[in-house]
Design a protein around this nucleic acid. Sequence first.
DNA 1: GTGTATGAAATCGTATACGATCCAGTGTGA
DNA 2: TCACACTGGATCGTATACGATTTCATACAC
Lengths: 219, 219
Amino acid sequence: MAPSKSESAYRLLHERITEGTFSPGYRLVLGTIAAELGCSVVPVREAIRRLEAEGLVTFERNVGATVAAADTTLYLHTMQTLAIIEGAATALSAPFIDENQLAAARAINQAMSDLLVDFNAPRFTQLNNEFHQVLYRNCPNPHILELVHRGWDRLAVMRSSSFTHIPGRARESVKEHAGLLDLIEAKAPAAQIEQAARAHRTTTLNAYLAAASLPASPL
Amino acid sequence: MAPSKSESAYRLLHERITEGTFSPGYRLVLGTIAAELGCSVVPVREAIRRLEAEGLVTFERNVGATVAAADTTLYLHTMQTLAIIEGAATALSAPFIDENQLAAARAINQAMSDLLVDFNAPRFTQLNNEFHQVLYRNCPNPHILELVHRGWDRLAVMRSSSFTHIPGRARESVKEHAGLLDLIEAKAPAAQIEQAARAHRTTTLNAYLAAASLPASPL
DNA sequence: GTGTATGAAATCGTATACGATCCAGTGTGA
DNA sequence: TCACACTGGATCGTATACGATTTCATACAC
């Protein structure tokens, strides 16, 4: 069956926001979006409220909705949250990763490694996303999986605007990926995998925190 | 300013669902709720979609909304998620807990201890909630705090229906609380507090898992 | 020049209305 | 008896309409 109009509106807006077409601060006017979609404002409202619940949009009464702002603090909090959730997701997922998936992850990481000589940030980011998805995809707890996705979405919104890559981090990142894969392949204890996956993200987080003269994350 | 009608509807439904007035499976009919609130269906729809995004309600197209079902698997997944998030929230909160808060937490735990002789499950649950709130309330990361609240809400929905207390667990619980408070007071490392807070919840989770002949949580 | 009042335009919030869809109960034929 | 088509009622999905609120530009007073 054709998706409902509110569903279509949701998907369109979600895509535009995470892809960066609508960047943080962009004003989402009900009437305008409704006109573009060829529907009335009611389904658009619903879609926007959904996006609000996911943290991609902020909504103010009688004023309207804007794509969530990307201030540094929020970004860092989101990263910290994702470090925790994704670490757990990866650890829980590990026992269910089969050889094909492991091989796929190694291939992606190799591609990332190859990219280091002629660096291309968007491509690198994309491969990085794919890599991590393979690692947490098998997590048997759907709530955790959902939280991971929401975390990635939030980061995507903000990254599309203004957060720069840290020099030298790409190379480290590839190494850490390899280490993670080794742990998974060796069927290391869950706690150890969790710790490694979390640290992988926390390292980046702490680099940003240091750049902002803030103390490192205690976790 | 008076809250918007959609806000009122949201609050009413949220309360009724988490308090257990509307138990899992209860059918939320737009027209009925609208009539009760003295408003039209539009704001009610919005409220229900919000509850859906929070996982308290399931919504099916052209069919309607029901309070989220409470099957065992879901319940256990929610507990596992909360163990992880709340553990982190407690650890991050710890450095910001002042002496008054610590004293309040000790008082609550003492009340729980006193309750052991003449056990009263609802009262015990309530004190337990208050205790944990004091412990994670100061978490400086608002995303994590929000996730903790959502987790508690989800658990509240399901608990109000059918999950029974585990014999002897209350006494253990009080002891674990005391241990946690000691760690916080001693300004133990964040990782250690996280571990203890998580374990406190995981122990209960594993008891349920064992009762359902399922393997223990690896985290 | 600064600050405040004012009015119009833009936008939101919600009621109402009606077509679309689902569901349950009934009747028919094999 | 069972499977299946049919129908009426309940409920949902969304368009439209209009009052309420905010915002911003303009004009005026000091």
